[in-house]
Design a protein around this nucleic acid. Structure first.
Length: 150
DNA sequence: GCCAACGTTGGC
DNA sequence: GCCAACGTTGGC
């Protein structure tokens, strides 16, 4: 089983939204590296941290499980969606996604500042300067450590 | 709101 | 293939 971290702006979609919905397509990813993780590497049953970016309190807010195999992100075909991609098409779709399912909401946010302050997490891409990747793998030892920080 | 870092586009 | 210009991300 693999572990992941997935970012979302809570103004767009938050951990509370996922808790309410139970399960949701992780749509709108328009970065090839992030897409490749979903399309090529994620497996049903993998676990992921839910991370709030561009929020009052930035950090990890809960966990979820990968709930589907990859499929085409429908928003890329939808002209009314802000994720519409005119350069994609049903014959040559560019963007794939997976569904995620709610697993847990932390009792508090494990903040980015705390993650940065922990020397054992220095290898995480999340805490490195200039990181903008919205989906990234997490090592099992990092996963276990972060769960203990809650 | 600012701005640094990064990814993508497009001219050449 | 290079690289400048541009747009976006995301922390602060």
């Amino acid at each position: 089983m693999a572990y992941w971290l997935m970012k979302s702006e809570p103004d767009v979609y938050s951990i509370d939204d996922l808790e309410r919905d139970g399960r949701e397509p992780w749509d709108g990813i328009r970065n090839y590296q992030a897409r490749n993780f979903m399309r090529d590497e994620m497996k049903v049953g993998d676990k992921a941290f839910f991370y709030h970016s561009n929020a009052d309190t930035v950090g990890i807010v809960g966990t979820m499980t990968i709930a589907s195999t990859p499929y085409d992100d429908p928003t890329q075909f939808d002209k009314k969606s802000k994720y519409f991609d005119a350069k994609s098409g049903k014959d040559k779709p560019r963007w794939q996604l997976v569904d995620v399912a709610f697993e847990s909401k932390f009792s508090r946010v494990v903040t980015l500042a705390e993650l940065k302050a922990n020397p054992k997490l220095a290898d995480m891409r999340l805490v490195q300067k200039g990181n903008r990747l919205s989906i990234m793998p997490v090592a099992k030892k990092e996963w276990d450590l972060i769960l203990k920080m809650v």
